[in-house]
């Protein structure tokens, strides 16, 4: 058997991927076999997973899923598409974490921020000029759906507190702490350690400036609880927050979230 755009069909020896165009995707001109681009004349082997795409066309949910599956390590997508991840704070960390998770086809994101997009955000946060003044929750949702239209997204646009976090995020598998304010960072971790045993948690501390790339570390606090950063580089006068280093930390967070979901803790 082989898989063609989500359908399982019998394997016939000697079939080339271009032979599937007529029956499975008229006009297809991009061919992916087992996650890698292939020429139209490539011979198929039993067990292959094939994606046929028409250049420029928006894929259906099923096609999108098969493309994501094909690009990922086998078995990964089954876990990722069932996962629910909460993101607290949609700034330089949160927008990047959310983007990385949307692109790998995470099942559901719960996005929380009380603020609107401001010009000073654009030096590091994944918003655009046309989104100035929009609620961050709505602006980020709009952007994420452009990256992957098949991610379920819930939004919460009020100020979070130590008390409300367990309620707002009661369905999550992993919670990403992407706040700017250090007191909120502490309150969130305290709340989760006290009230949400068993969930994964990936926070951040020390991401400002342009210090050494490799001083950003992923530190395990306890099982499934991590803090990312160098622990000392605070955002303060003379040391700004900038896209490159905040982005390094955000991608540490996103990868750690994936590792928790895959039980690589």
């Amino acid at each position: 058997m082989i898989k063609v755009n989500e359908q399982t069909v019998p394997y016939q020896e000697g079939t080339r991927i271009k032979d599937l165009v007529e029956t499975h995707k008229a006009g297809a001109d991009i061919f992916i076999i087992n996650g890698f681009p292939a020429s139209p004349d490539t011979l198929l082997a039993d067990g292959d997973t094939c994606c046929l795409i028409r250049r420029g066309e928006v894929p259906t949910a099923g096609e999108m899923e098969s493309l994501l599956v094909a690009r990922h390590t086998p078995g990964l997508h089954e876990v990722v598409k069932k996962a629910v991840v909460g993101i607290m704070g949609l700034g330089g960390l949160g927008t990047v974490v959310a983007g990385a998770l949307a692109r790998i086809g995470i099942g559901k994101l719960i996005l929380a921020d009380f603020d609107v997009v401001e010009p000073s955000n654009l030096n590091r946060q994944q918003y655009t000029i046309s989104q100035l003044g929009m609620k961050k929750t709505n602006a980020l949702k709009e952007n994420l759906l452009q990256m992957n239209p098949y991610v379920a997204i819930e939004t919460f646009d009020e100020l979070l507190s130590e008390e409300s976090i367990p309620e707002v995020f009661d369905t999550v598998d992993v919670l990403a702490e992407c706040f700017d304010d250090p007191a909120m960072k502490a309150a969130a971790l305290s709340s989760v350690l006290t009230n949400m045993p068993g969930i994964g948690y990936v926070g951040a501390s020390g991401v400002a400036g342009y210090g050494d790339n490799n001083s950003i570390k992923t530190q395990k606090i306890r099982k499934n609880i991590y803090i990312i950063g160098d622990n000392v580089s605070a955002a303060e006068p003379g040391q700004g927050l900038m896209a490159p280093r905040v982005g390094i930390a955000a991608h540490h967070q996103a990868n750690q979230i994936l590792r928790i979901l895959l039980e690589e803790d």
Binding site: G91, L93, D180, K185, S205, G229, N231, S233, A234
Partner: peptide, 8 residues
């Protein structure tokens, strides 16, 4: 003690 610094 786990201490946090600001920025995100």
């Amino acid at each position: 003690l786990i201490r946090f610094v600001g920025g995100g």
